[in-house]
Design a binder for these strands. Structure first.
Length: 673
RNA sequence: GCGGGCGUGAUGGAAUGGUAGACAUACCAGACUUAAAAUCUGUUGGGCCUUGUGCCCGUGUGGGUUCGAGUCCCACCGCCCGCACCA
C-alpha cells in the first residue's frame, strides 16, 4: 500500500482502487466480559471513542456463539436460517431489512461493570471481517440506528456538535473525523476534540488500562490459487498414502501438463478436469518415501503466469526463473498499457509477485515495483441491434376482460449482426423484411450480443494499417471508442489518398520548381512538432488529426518537386507508428534509404517554426473585435500602438484613453476600456 | 452509503487561462458521368436583420476569481465507473 505513493505515472484512479481494495483500517480490539461467566466476546471497532454511546453487542449469524445457540434453540436456528436465505447480490444487500434476535446473553461494559448490554444476533454483521462481532453505537452510525429504532434499543449520544445539543433522532450524527465535537463523558478526559484525537486517546487509554489493543485490519480478499481445470500450471504437490501432502522435489520442477499425443488422453468432451481422467499423468513416486503416489490435479490460476511473465521475458531461455543480471538490465517495464479491468487483481498480484521474487533473489531491489508507468486504455465498443418479442402463454385467453390475463409470459430478445442491419436516419432496420430493431449504442463487445467485429474481416477488407489508423484516430485512447462501419471506411479512403499523393509526387519531374516551397516546409516542421508531441503524450487522435491537416496542405501545395518529396517522406515517417506497412511502401517508392523503421525520427527545425508575420486578435474588455497583422518580432509597445490605432479600438475608446492594455506576445491583445 | 471521473455542434472529438468547435463522420450543394458508385470542390454551432470584413447568443445550470474562463474555485443537476451492511 505504501508503494502506491511512489507510482506517480500510474493513474490516480487505479492507485485509489488498489488502496480501497487493500482496505487498511486502524481500530481497537477488546473483549466484552459475559455476565454468565462465559468466554469474553471479542469485538473490533474503528470508533472506540464512541464507547459511551454503546447500545448493544452484535454478533454475526455465523459467529461461534450463534452456532452454539443454534444447536440448543430451534428459535435461534430458525432465525439464523432466515438470515442466510438473504440474497448476496448488491441490490439485495442494500435493500435487505435489518434483522435481529436477542440471545438473552448479557455482557459488562468495559468502563462500567454495572452497565449491562444485551447481545443480539444481527444479519448485517459479517463473520469474515474483524472478529465477527461489534458493539453498536446507534447515535453515530446510521445502520446501528436503524436497527435500534426497529428493536426499541437505547440511543445515546457520545458527543454533540459544539453548537447543537439536540439528541439524535432518526439520522445518525456522523461528522468527519477531522471535525471538532463536544464529548458527553469521555473517559480519557477529553471535552472538545476531533474524532481522530479521540480515537487515538481511547486506544492509548485502553492499552494502558490493559483491556484493549490497537490493531490494524485489512479487507483484502484471499486469492484462491487453485482451479479445477486443465489450462494452468500444475500445482507441484503429491498426495502420498503414507506421508500425506508432500511438495514435489525441486529437481523435478516444473511439472508440465501432459500433451495430448493420441488425441484421447486429454478429453474435454465430458465435464470435469481432464487431468483427473488421464491414464498415467497422475502417477508418480512420493518425494518423501519413494512409494507410488498421485499428483495434485488442480492447476494454478492463470493470474500466476500473468503476475511475472514480464520478468521471465528478460531471460526467456534461462534455466532459473530469471537471470538476475538480465533482469537488472531490462527491468522495469517502462510503460504498461492495459484495460482498467486489470486495475486491482492483475496489477496488484504483479506487484506482490515482484516483491516476493525480490526476496527469493529473482529480481533486483530496483524492480520491486515492476511497472514504472501505467496507462489504462478504453474498450472498443459497438452498437447492439436487437428486437424484443413478447411470448405469450399458449393458453392465453384473448377475450378475457382481465388485462392481467393477457400479459406476456416472458419477452425474448434476438440479437442481429451489424451486416444484417441497415441504418436510415439514425434508426435501424433489418435488411431482410425491413422490420425496425432497437439500437443500443456504445456497448462492450460481446459474442452473445452479436456486436463483435472480427479483426480478420476488417484486415482482409481494408488491411491492418486501416484498422490501426481508425482505432487510434477516433477517440483518445483512455476513452471507449465506438466502432462504426463508416469509421474504417473513412480511414481507408484517406490512406488511399496518401498513396495516390505519393504516386503523383514520384511522377514529378526531378528538380521541377514550383511556388510555396517554404510555406510547405513550414507546415511540415509544425506537423513534426505536433505529431511528436501527440505520440509522446498518448494523444494519438490529436496526432492523426494533425496528419490529416498536413496531408491536406500537401495535396493543395504547388511547391517544387524537392520540397514535395521531402514532405511526403516526412509524412510517411510521422505516419509510420500507426501505418507501418503503407509508410514503408511510400519510403521505398520515394527512394528512401533502408527501412523507414530504422530511419531516425524527424526533428522539427525551430527556425522554421517561427512565423515571419503573425495575426493577433484584438479584444476589447475580453471580447474579440478585430485583428492586426504584423512582424513576429514586434515588441509589446509596438503591438500596443498598432492595436490602439485599430478602427474598432478607436471606436470603442471613443476618444478616451484605455485603462489598461494587455499584450500576450504571439497570442492576443486585450484593451481594457 | 463511500470514493473517483465526465458533461463542448447532428456524431466522434480539438483547444500550455488568450480567436471555442481543429481534424473527421454525417448531411446538403456543385464538378465529372447517359446514370450510379468512386473521386474532386464547397457549405454547415444557434438566432436576427439592414446579407455585412454585420449584430446578438453559445462549452449541463447558477454564482465567483481574472483584463480575459470550456479550462481555476464554490454550489447544484445529469451521466458513467469502482467499492460496498467492512464495524
Amino acid at each position: 500500500m505504501s508503494g502506491l505513493d511512489g507510482l506517480d505515472n500510474w493513474s490516480a484512479k487505479v492507485r485509489l482502487m488498489q488502496e480501497n481494495w487493500i482496505g487498511k483500517s486502524r481500530g481497537l480490539q477488546f473483549g466484552f466480559e459475559r455476565c454468565d461467566g462465559g468466554e469474553a466476546i471479542e469485538v473490533y471497532t474503528t470508533r472506540p471513542d464512541t464507547l459511551m454511546g454503546a447500545s448493544f453487542v452484535g454478533i454475526s449469524p455465523d459467529h461461534p456463539i450463534a452456532k452454539e445457540l443454534e444447536k440448543s434453540s430451534p428459535e435461534v436456528a430458525a432465525f439464523v436460517a432466515e438470515c442466510r436465505k438473504g440474497g448476496t447480490t448488491e441490490e439485495a444487500i442494500e435493500t435487505a431489512e435489518k434483522l435481529g434476535y436477542d440471545t438473552g446473553i448479557r455482557v459488562k461494559h468495559p468502563l462500567n461493570p454495572d452497565w449491562e448490554l444485551p447481545v443480539w444476533i444481527a444479519n448485517f454483521i459479517l463473520m469474515d471481517y474483524g472478529t465477527g462481532a461489534i458493539f453498536a453505537c446507534p447515535a453515530h452510525d446510521q445502520r446501528d440506528l436503524d436497527f435500534c429504532r426497529k428493536y426499541d434499543l437505547p440511543v445515546l449520544n457520545a458527543f454533540f456538535m459544539p453548537d447543537d445539543a439536540a439528541p439524535v433522532a432518526n439520522e445518525a450524527l456522523v461528522p468527519a473525523k477531522s471535525e471538532k465535537v463536544r464529548w458527553v463523558d469521555h473517559f480519557a478526559g477529553l471535552t472538545e476534540a476531533t474524532g481522530e484525537e479521540a480515537i487515538n486517546a481511547t486506544v492509548d487509554f485502553a492499552e494502558q488500562a490493559g483491556w484493549g489493543e490497537g490493531v490494524t485490519k485489512f479487507r483484502l480478499r484471499d486469492w484462491g490459487l487453485s482451479r479445477q481445470r486443465y489450462w494452468g500450471c500444475p500445482i507441484p504437490v503429491v498426495h502420498c498414502a503414507d506421508c500425506g501432502v508432500v511438495p514435489e522435489k525441486k529437481e523435478n520442477l516444473p511439472i508440465a501438463l501432459p500433451y495430448d499425443e493420441d488425441g484421447k488422453a486429454i478429453d474435454f468432451s465430458v465435464p470435469g478436469n481432464p487431468l483427473d481422467r488421464h491414464p498415467s499423468w497422475r502417477n508418480c513416486a512420493s518425494p518423501a518415501c519413494g512409494k507410488p503416489a498421485q499428483r495434485e490435479t488442480d492447476t494454478m490460476d492463470t493470474f500466476v503466469d500473468s503476475s511475472w511473465y514480464f520478468a521471465r521475458f528478460t531471460a526467456p531461455h534461462a534455466e532459473t526463473p530469471t537471470d538476475l543480471e538480465e533482469a537488472a538490465y531490462w527491468m522495469n517495464v517502462d510503460q504498461y498499457i492495459g484495460g482498467v479491468e486489470h486495475a486491482i487483481l492483475h496489477l496488484l498480484y504483479s506487484r506482490f509477485f515482484a516483491r516476493a521474487m525480490n526476496i527469493c533473489g529473482h529480481l533486483p531491489d530496483s524492480a520491486k515495483e515492476p511497472f514504472d508507468a501505467l496507462f489504462t486504455q478504453g474498450m472498443v465498443t459497438h452498437a447492439i441491434y436487437k428486437s424484443t418479442e413478447n411470448v405469450f402463454h399458449k393458453d392465453t385467453d384473448w377475450n378475457s376482460n382481465d388485462s392481467n390475463a393477457r400479459l406476456p409470459a416472458y419477452s425474448k430478445s434476438t440479437y442481429y449482426y451489424p451486416e444484417e442491419v441497415e441504418l436510415r436516419d439514425g434508426r435501424a432496420f433489418l435488411k431482410e423484411g425491413g422490420a425496425e430493431v432497437t439500437v443500443i449504442p456504445s456497448a462492450k463487445m460481446s459474442k452473445s450480443k452479436n456486436n463483435v467485429v472480427d479483426p480478420l474481416s476488417i484486415i482482409s477488407a481494408y488491411g491492418a494499417d486501416t484498422a490501426r489508423w481508425f482505432v487510434l484516430s477516433d477517440s483518445p485512447p483512455e476513452r471507449h471508442g465506438e466502432w462504426t462501419a463508416s469509421g474504417p471506411e473513412a480511414a481507408y479512403k484517406h490512406l488511399n489518398r496518401v498513396w495516390k499523393l505519393c504516386d503523383k509526387i514520384a511522377a514529378m519531374e526531378p528538380g521541377a520548381a514550383g511556388q510555396g516551397d517554404e510555406e510547405l516546409l513550414r507546415e511540415m516542421h509544425k506537423a513534426i512538432r505536433d505529431v511528436t508531441l501527440g505520440v509522446e503524450s498518448f494523444g494519438f487522435n490529436a496526432s492523426i488529426a494533425r496528419l490529416y491537416a498536413f496531408t491536406n496542405a500537401l495535396a493543395k501545395s504547388k511547391a517544387g518537386q524537392a520540397a514535395q518529396k521531402q514532405a511526403i517522406m516526412v509524412l510517411a515517417q510521422l505516419m509510420s507508428p500507426m501505418t507501418p506497412h503503407l509508410s514503408e511502401d511510400i519510403w521505398a517508392h520515394q527512394g528512401g534509404t533502408g527501412l523507414i523503421t530504422t530511419a531516425p525520427w524527424p526533428v522539427a527545425d525551430e527556425a522554421m517554426l517561427v512565423e515571419a508575420s503573425v495575426t493577433l486578435p484584438i479584444q476589447i474588455n475580453g471580447k474579440r473585435l478585430g485583428e492586426i497583422t504584423g512582424a513576429a518580432d514586434l515588441d509589446k509597445a509596438e503591438v500596443e500602438k498598432l492595436a490602439l490605432a485599430h478602427e474598432a479600438v478607436q471606436k470603442a475608446l471613443n476618444g478616451g484613453a484605455p485603462k489598461k492594455v494587455i499584450v500576450v506576445p504571439g497570442r492576443i491583445v486585450n484593451v481594457v476600456a
